[in-house]
């Protein structure tokens, strides 16, 4: 950290204390007429540059909040303001600070030595009115640095590699009841075959990524699950996370053969990219871009015949990103 600080200080000193170029060509006749220094315009320019920097910092601050209403709108506002301030700064520079002179002849080709000197002279003289060049340069550097930082910071959204724990936190644990859209519990006997149900964890928000599950009933003889999951399916009722493991859409399609002898087998399908999972074989991927099966929820039946979870999911819920397969969800049961 101290190394970083020393470098920053060194860079800053270098920037401020840079030796000014010797005023060459001083003896030559001026091309651009002299302009009077314009102090208020310089202060305005500095204020605009700092405002642009401030808006960019505001962008980073808004970005760093996880749960902020209208976050996207605020982000857009901050970035838009930053660019608006930069544009205003350019306007001030162009209209009030650069000495302008219309040349009647065309610019000569830059390769000619004397012509190059002339252009250098033009540039030098145009900047004559600036009285606080270094301060303004520092201001411009601040604005550029802040806007650059604001543009780079969203890279963090490419993957939650800093804090992934919330993604493994689901409301399911041993004993949590399955409830439907209206909050009614599911009775094992009322779950019918050949159709599918959406259930939520009782007491959890429906928007929570770990809450919704699809529930399907099969003839227990049809199920082909790993031995460790043999007691997860009371009465042949299986439950999987409703969130596709590819891009996080809802599994909204259940394919049910009317006559299995000549028709494709049962499947849970995500309508976004047609990832297809076989619910009788632990939601194995049979088609589409998903890279891993849907996490399965172990089920149990209580004394009243109501369906309850018997633990947390078999794997991490939601879309896949780097390293997601290497971790198991926390299981508080």
């Amino acid at each position: 950290m101290s190394v970083l600080r020393r470098w920053a200080i060194a860079l800053f000193v270098l920037l401020l204390g840079r030796k000014q170029r010797a005023p060459r060509l001083a003896d030559r006749e001026r091309i651009v007429p002299e302009g009077a220094p314009d102090q208020p315009a310089e202060w305005l320019l500095l204020a605009l540059l700092l405002a642009a920097a401030g808006a960019s910092v505001g962008f980073i601050v808004v970005y760093s909040f996880n749960h902020l209403g209208h976050q996207t709108q605020y982000l857009g506002l901050a970035l838009g303001l930053a660019f608006a301030f930069v544009a205003a700064a350019f306007l001030v520079v162009a209209k009030r600070l650069i000495v302008s002179e219309e040349l009647e002849h065309e610019y000569p080709l830059p390769s000619h030595p004397s012509a190059r000197e002339e252009i250098e002279q033009l540039v030098d003289e145009s900047g004559d009115r600036f009285t606080r060049k270094r301060l303004l340069l520092a201001g411009a550097g601040t604005a550029a640095g802040a806007i650059g930082a604001a543009l780079v910071v969203p890279v963090l959204s490419l993957g939650p590699f800093l804090d992934t724990d919330p993604f493994y936190d689901t409301p399911w644990r041993r004993g949590v009841r399955l409830v439907d859209e209206a909050g009614r519990p599911f009775l094992l006997d009322e779950v019918e075959p050949e159709t599918f149900y959406t259930a939520y964890a009782e007491g959890a928000g429906k928007e929570q990524i770990g809450s919704p599950i699809v529930v399907v009933r099969f003839d227990p003889a049809e199920l082909d699950l790993p031995a460790a999951r043999s007691d997860w399916t009371p009465g042949g009722v299986v439950a999987y996370s409703k969130i596709c493991t590819h891009a996080g859409c809802a599994i909204a399609i259940f394919r049910k053969p009317t006559f299995p002898a000549v028709e494709p087998g049962p499947a849970l399908i995500c309508p976004c990219h047609y990832s297809t999972f076989d619910p009788t074989r632990a939601a194995k991927v049979t088609f589409g871009p998903a890279g891993r099966p849907l996490p399965q929820l172990p089920l149990a039946v209580d004394g009243k015949g109501q369906l309850r979870a018997a633990g947390n999911f078999s794997g991490p819920v939601g879309p896949s990103w780097w390293g997601v397969r290497t971790r198991k969800p926390r299981n508080p049961s």
Binding site: E192, E194, T195, F196, F254, R255, K256, P257, T258, E263, P264
Partner: peptide, 9 residues
Amino acid sequence: GPFLMPRFP
């Protein structure tokens, strides 16, 4: 629930 469509009771 004809063909592959689920049957809705």
